[in-house]
């Protein structure tokens, strides 16, 4: 009895168990396959909602003569883009965007790198200094713009006043193109240098310390160590900082918009009219021009993609060269 009952039990079990194993294994297979996607899906759902949809919808509006209030539009094809390409102000805005970007991004990253290097050395009250460089970042950009535009006033500004002490004639900050753009780049740098310095600092701290020790034993000086160890080791962080600075730098709006409170933003001769300010002017201060503003927005998007790709190609090339040299 006992022996005969024995085979039946496994038989019954084997009858049920394959199904159970199959289900749980299927579950775990799903788990393995699907859950990573599930975990990252909030980002993509949000991105689709606030990134992709506006992008596509803006592209759609760029093909219409669109009334933003009544949400009605008539299809005009690529007329808006044609119009934009014919505008003198668009090309000036494009030029200004690129020059202000260069005037801000390049010094910003160089200075941020220097600050990060100093913060990485043995300082007393480390946290204090690190928080200190981040301070400008938490100031509202609008407040920064208002304060700096007072500092850079042509007649009553502090900067011209200080320059007069060292015998430099007053600079026309609101008239001449390059000084105006330098003033705006200064605001941008004031805000972003500390932020970038902290990100670079984080990258520097991840560099293995024994590399430095070996180098100093080999007799490498401070600068040699910085250029031969820190910079190459920092490359991934630098690429990140450069790309975010590019995206941000091409979209600056608050600073040029508030640089002068008189009239349409951008200066009497469009000295500091950037693409974002131009699209704002076209969209809000010209009747029914949302379609044209959307066209400008898309062109700006394409410009950022283009410059991002150039960035990527250049940095990749450099890193390949470096690899070949080190190997």
């Amino acid at each position: 009895m006992t022996t005969s009952s024995l085979p039946t039990a496994p038989a019954a079990a084997s009858e049920r168990s394959p199904r159970r194993i199959a289900f749980s294994s299927r579950l775990s297979r799903w788990d393995l396959k699907l859950s990573p996607y599930l975990y990252i899906s909030p980002f993509f759902i949000l991105f689709a909602l606030v990134g992709l949809f506006p992008l596509v919808y803006t592209g759609y509006i760029a093909l219409l003569k669109f009334d933003p209030i009544l949400h009605t539009g008539t299809f005009v094809g690529f007329d808006n883009f044609v119009w934009v390409f014919q505008q003198r102000q668009f090309w000036i805005a494009l030029r200004n965007t690129l020059t202000i970007f260069l005037l801000s991004a390049v010094p910003q990253i160089v200075v941020a790198l220097a600050i990060a290097a100093v913060l990485d050395s043995n300082l007393k009250a480390k946290t204090f200094w690190r928080m200190g460089v981040l301070l400008p970042y938490i100031v509202m950009p609008v407040a920064v713009a208002l304060i700096f535009s007072k500092l850079f006033s042509d007649d009553y500004g502090l900067v011209n006043h200080l320059l007069s002490f060292i015998g430099i004639a007053p600079i026309h900050w609101h008239t001449d193109t390059i000084p105006a753009q330098i003033a705006i780049a200064t605001m941008v740098n004031f805000r972003w240098t500390g932020y970038n310095a902290l990100i670079l600092l984080a990258g520097m701290q991840a560099i293995p310390r024994d590399l430095y020790e070996q180098a100093s034993i080999d007799g490498a000086g401070r600068f040699r160590r910085f250029f031969s160890i820190t910079i190459p080791q920092l490359r991934p962080t630098l690429i990140f900082v450069i790309i975010t600075a590019t995206i941000g730098g091409l979209q600056i709006f608050d600073e040029p918009q508030l640089y002068d409170t008189g009239g349409l933003a951008g200066g009497s001769n469009q000295q500091w009219l950037t693409l974002t300010v131009y699209l704002h002017n076209v969209g809000w201060f010209q009747d029914g021009s949302f379609g044209r503003a959307a066209a400008v927005a898309w062109l700006l998007f394409l410009l950022i993609v283009l410059i991002g790709l150039i960035n990527l190609a250049v940095t990749r090339r450099i890193s390949n060269n470096e690899n070949r040299r080190t190997s």
Partner: peptide, 23 residues
């Protein structure tokens, strides 16, 4: 009319350019 503000902006910029000695 609806373009008054935008036209005035263009003219004001023109006056300012001359006063600033740019043109």
């Amino acid at each position: 009319g609806i373009k008054y503000g935008a036209i005035m902006g263009a003219v004001q910029n023109g006056l300012t350019r001359v006063e600033q000695g740019q043109q």
